[in-house]
Simulated scan of single mutants.
Amino acid sequence: MMYLTIAVLCSVAVSVLLKILRQKKMDIRQTIVAGYPVAFLLTWILLKPDVGAINALDSAWGIIIALGILLPAVFIILGRAIEAVGMVATDASQRLSLIIPIIAAFLLFGEVLTGTRVLGLVLGFLALGALVYRPQQTDTPKQTKYTPLWLFGVWAGYGIIDILFKQVAKQGTAFPLTLFVSFGVAGLLLLVYLLVTRVRWQADALVAGLLLGALNMGNIYAYVRAHQVLSDSPSIVFTGMNVGVIAVATLIGVGVFKERLNRINLVGLLLAVCCVGVLFLA
C-alpha cells in the first residue's frame, strides 16, 4: 500500500503545485518545460529503459509525437482548470477520463459494451456535468464562459493519452522506453515553442519545474510499482488510485484552499466515486 499512497499523494501534489503557481501568476509553461529534464533523468534511473531497442519504435513514432504534444498541453490545461474551478473538480475530471478508453474500446476496437459499462458511462457523464456546474451569480463572466472547456480539456486530454499508451503497449513497445522518448520529445517541442515566442524567462517558474518533474515521475513510478507489488489485487490499485485522488484533493481543496462546492458539485463527486466503482466491476 505504500506505493499506492505515494502515487495518490504525488498526483494531488501536482495539482497543489499548479494551483500555487497560478496564484503567484507564474508562467506554467516554463515550469513544465523545466520539469521534463528531471522526469527524463528519473525515468532513466528508475525504469531503466532499453535505449538499444529504439529502432523498434518505428511503428510507434506517430503515437510518441502525439504524446509529446499532448503531455505538456494537458499540463497547461490542467493549470487553467485549477485556476478556474479549483483542484477538487479538476482532479475529479481527470479521474473520470477513464471512461474515454472504454468508449474507444467499443467504438474503435470492437469490444462488447455491457450493461454495467453503460451504467458507468452514464454516471461518468452525469458527474462531469455536476462538477462543471457553477451558479451564474457567483461566477465571473470569464469563468462562466471557459470553465466547461478547461474541464473538458482535462477530461479529454488524459483520456486520449491513456488510449495512446495502451496502443503503444499493444504494438509491443516497452513502456519505460516509450515514456523515456515521449518525455524527451515533449520537453524539446515545448522548449522550441517558448524560444520561438521569445518568452521572458522566470527563475522561480523554472525552479518550480524541478519539483514538478519529480512529482510527475514519482506518481508514474509509484503507480507502476503498486501494480507490480499488488499484481494479484489490481482492483485495489485501480479503485484506490482514482478514489484516493478524489478524496485527498477534496480534503486539501476545501480544507486548505477554502474552495467552495455547491450541492450539485458534491453530488458530482459522489457520482464520480460511483462511476469508478461501477467501471471497475464492468
Results as ranks from 00 to 15, higher is better:
residue 211 L to A: 08
residue 195 L to V: 08
residue 210 L to A: 13
residue 253 G to L: 00
residue 166 K to M: 14
residue 205 A to R: 11
residue 184 G to V: 01
residue 205 A to H: 10
residue 171 Q to I: 15
residue 200 R to G: 00
residue 242 N to T: 03
residue 256 V to W: 03
residue 192 V to W: 03
residue 203 A to F: 12
residue 253 G to E: 00
residue 186 A to T: 03
residue 230 L to K: 00
residue 190 L to Q: 13
residue 203 A to S: 13
residue 215 L to I: 07
residue 203 A to G: 06
residue 214 A to Y: 10
residue 220 I to R: 09
residue 229 V to Q: 06
residue 180 F to I: 14
residue 215 L to G: 11
residue 221 Y to I: 13
residue 189 L to K: 02
residue 220 I to H: 07
residue 176 P to G: 08
residue 187 G to I: 02
residue 188 L to Y: 08
residue 217 M to Q: 12
residue 244 G to F: 01
residue 180 F to C: 09
residue 222 A to F: 07
residue 222 A to L: 07
residue 241 M to E: 05
residue 164 L to A: 09
residue 245 V to H: 00
residue 212 L to S: 09
residue 172 G to Q: 04
residue 248 V to Y: 01
residue 219 N to C: 10
residue 175 F to R: 14
residue 218 G to Y: 05
residue 188 L to F: 09
residue 213 G to R: 04
residue 232 D to Y: 12
residue 165 F to C: 11
residue 240 G to E: 01
residue 250 T to H: 00
residue 177 L to F: 09
residue 260 R to A: 01
residue 212 L to D: 07
residue 226 A to D: 01
residue 186 A to Y: 00
residue 174 A to K: 14
residue 222 A to E: 04
residue 259 E to V: 07
residue 220 I to F: 10
residue 171 Q to Y: 14
residue 228 Q to L: 08
residue 233 S to N: 05
residue 174 A to M: 15
residue 178 T to L: 15
residue 238 F to G: 05
residue 242 N to V: 04
residue 177 L to M: 08
residue 209 G to Q: 02
residue 166 K to C: 14
residue 210 L to M: 10
residue 197 T to A: 08
residue 199 V to P: 02
residue 191 L to C: 10
residue 220 I to A: 06
residue 223 Y to M: 12
residue 181 V to S: 06
residue 190 L to Y: 08
residue 251 L to M: 01
residue 229 V to K: 10
residue 196 V to F: 09
residue 217 M to V: 12
residue 218 G to F: 05
residue 195 L to H: 07
residue 236 I to L: 13
residue 238 F to L: 10
residue 185 V to C: 05
residue 259 E to F: 09
residue 175 F to Q: 15
residue 205 A to F: 04
residue 166 K to D: 14
residue 238 F to H: 04
residue 185 V to G: 02
residue 257 F to H: 00
residue 205 A to M: 03
residue 180 F to P: 11
residue 165 F to S: 14
residue 215 L to T: 07
residue 260 R to D: 01
residue 230 L to V: 00
residue 229 V to A: 12
residue 181 V to C: 04
residue 206 L to G: 15
residue 255 G to S: 02
residue 200 R to A: 02
residue 226 A to Q: 02
residue 222 A to W: 01
residue 210 L to E: 07
residue 179 L to T: 15
residue 188 L to G: 12
residue 182 S to H: 05
residue 201 W to N: 05
residue 195 L to D: 07
residue 258 K to L: 06
residue 232 D to E: 11
residue 209 G to V: 01
residue 252 I to D: 01
residue 192 V to E: 04
residue 188 L to M: 03
residue 255 G to L: 02
residue 217 M to W: 09
residue 232 D to N: 05
residue 202 Q to D: 06
residue 204 D to W: 07
residue 242 N to G: 11
residue 224 V to P: 02
residue 238 F to C: 03
residue 259 E to K: 08
residue 168 V to E: 13
residue 233 S to L: 06
residue 166 K to T: 09
